[in-house]
C-alpha cells in the first residue's frame, strides 16, 4: 500500500499539489517578510486573507471575471493594511494587539458580508473553477511540466515573487532602506528620509499579497467562499517567515516543506493507510512546531521588529 505512494504518477501529483497548497501561504509570507524587514509585525494576515478571499469570490460572482476578483482582492488587502498601518505607524498602537483586532475584524466582516449578500448562507452559489494555465512548450516537459507548468496564475505569481522580493530587498536602494528601518530606524531618519512612509509602503505590499493569498483560496481553488476558510494559513505564513529566517528563498523552502507534508498526508489518507486521520491532518503542523524548536534561526530577525519608532524618544 505504501509502495503506491512511490508510483511516478502519484509522486508527480503530490508535488503538483504541494505547489498549490504552498501558493496562498507563500504569497502572504512574501508580503509579510517585506513588512517585517521594515520593522512591522502584521499579525493580521489571517484576517486580511479572509477579507481577500471573500472579496475575490464576491466580485468574481458578480462580474463573472476571475481577473476582476483577483484585482478586487488585492485592493481589499491594501485597504485593510492601510487601516493597520494607520493604527501601528501613525497612532503607534501596539502591533500585536492591532494584528489580533484585524483578525477578528476579518473573520467577522467576511462572514457578515456573506450572510448579507446571500440570504441562505448554506447554499452559497459556486463560481466557475479557475482554470489551470499550462505554459506553452514548458508544460510538455516530462515530470517537470505537470509539476511546475500546469498551475494556476497565482501559483506562477507566487513563485515569481520569490526572486522579485529577494531582488527588491537585497539589490535595490529601497530594499536597503527598508532593511535599515527594521534594524535601526533612526539610522534612516537621520539621513533625512521618512520612516513612516516606507513602513506604509511595506505594509501595503504585504496587504496586497495577503489579499491575493486569500483570493487563491476562494476563487483559485474552492470556487466559493466558506467562513473561516483560511483555516490558520495566515498564522502559518507568519511561522514560515520565521522558519525562512526572513529570506525569500528560504521562505520558499519552508513553505514547500510544509505543503509537501500536507500534500503527502492527503495522499496517505487517499491510499487508506491505517493511521488516524486526525494525526495525519496534524502532521504538517507538528513538523512546523518541531522546525521552530530545532531551527531557532535568530540570525535573520530584524533587530527592531515590532518596536514603534518615535523620534523624540531616541535623541
Amino acid at each position: 500500500m505504501l509502495a503506491d505512494l512511490l508510483e511516478p504518477a502519484i509522486v508527480i501529483s503530490v508535488l503538483a499539489a504541494a505547489l498549490r497548497i504552498a501558493t496562498p501561504i507563500l504569497l502572504a509570507a512574501l508580503g509579510e517578510v517585506v513588512a517585517e524587514r521594515a520593522g512591522v509585525y502584521n499579525m493580521g494576515l489571517e484576517g486580511t486573507m479572509l477579507i481577500g478571499a471573500f472579496v475575490a469570490y464576491f466580485v468574481t460572482f458578480q462580474t463573472g471575471l476571475a481577473s476582476a476578483g483577483l484585482l478586487a482582492a488585492a485592493a481589499s488587502g491594501a485597504l485593510v493594511s492601510l487601516l493597520f498601518a494607520f493604527m501601528v505607524v501613525t497612532l503607534q498602537v501596539e502591533q500585536i494587539v492591532t494584528g489580533l483586532a484585524i483578525n477578528l475584524l476579518g473573520a467577522g466582516l467576511s462572514t457578515y458580508a456573506l450572510r448579507a449578500a446571500f440570504a441562505d448562507a448554506a447554499t452559497v452559489p459556486a463560481i466557475g473553477f479557475m482554470p489551470s494555465l499550462p505554459l506553452p512548450w514548458l508544460a510538455g516537459l516530462p515530470v517537470l511540466g505537470p509539476i511546475l507548468f500546469e498551475q494556476k496564475l497565482l501559483t506562477y505569481l507566487a513563485l515569481l515573487a520569490v526572486p522579485a522580493v529577494a531582488w527588491f530587498l537585497f539589490r535595490t536602494r529601497m530594499g536597503l532602506e527598508l532593511r535599515c528601518i527594521g534594524e535601526n530606524p533612526k539610522a534612516l531618519d537621520t539621513k533625512g528620509l521618512s520612516v513612516p512612509a516606507r513602513q506604509y509602503g511595506a505594509l501595503l505590499f504585504g496587504g496586497v499579497m495577503a489579499g491575493l493569498g486569500g483570493a487563491f483560496l476562494s476563487v483559485g481553488s474552492a470556487a466559493r467562499f466558506v467562513p473561516d476558510m483560511t483555516n490558520g494559513r495566515g498564522w502559518l505564513a507568519l511561522v514560515i517567515v520565521i522558519a525562512g529566517a526572513w529570506r525569500p528563498w528560504r521562505i520558499l523552502a519552508a513553505a514547500l516543506a510544509f505543503s509537501l507534508l500536507d500534500a503527502l498526508q492527503l495522499q496517505i489518507q487517499g491510499v487508506g493507510l491505517k493511521l488516524p486521520f486526525q494525526l495525519l491532518l496534524a502532521l504538517p503542523y507538528i513538523c512546523a512546531i518541531l522546525a521552530m524548536i530545532l531551527l531557532r534561526p535568530r540570525a535573520g530577525v530584524p533587530a527592531m521588529l515590532g518596536v514603534a519608532y518615535r523620534r523624540e524618544d531616541v535623541a
Binding site: 532602506e177 532593511r179 535599515c180 534594524e183 535601526n184 539610522a187 534612516l188 539621513k191 533587530a303
Partner: peptide
C-alpha cells in the same frame, strides 16, 4: 546611529 548588521559601506550608502 549605525546598523550593526550592515557593512560599513551599506551604513554610509543607505538613504542616499
Amino acid at each position: 546611529v549605525l546598523v550593526p548588521a550592515f557593512t560599513a559601506l551599506e551604513n554610509i550608502l543607505v538613504g542616499t
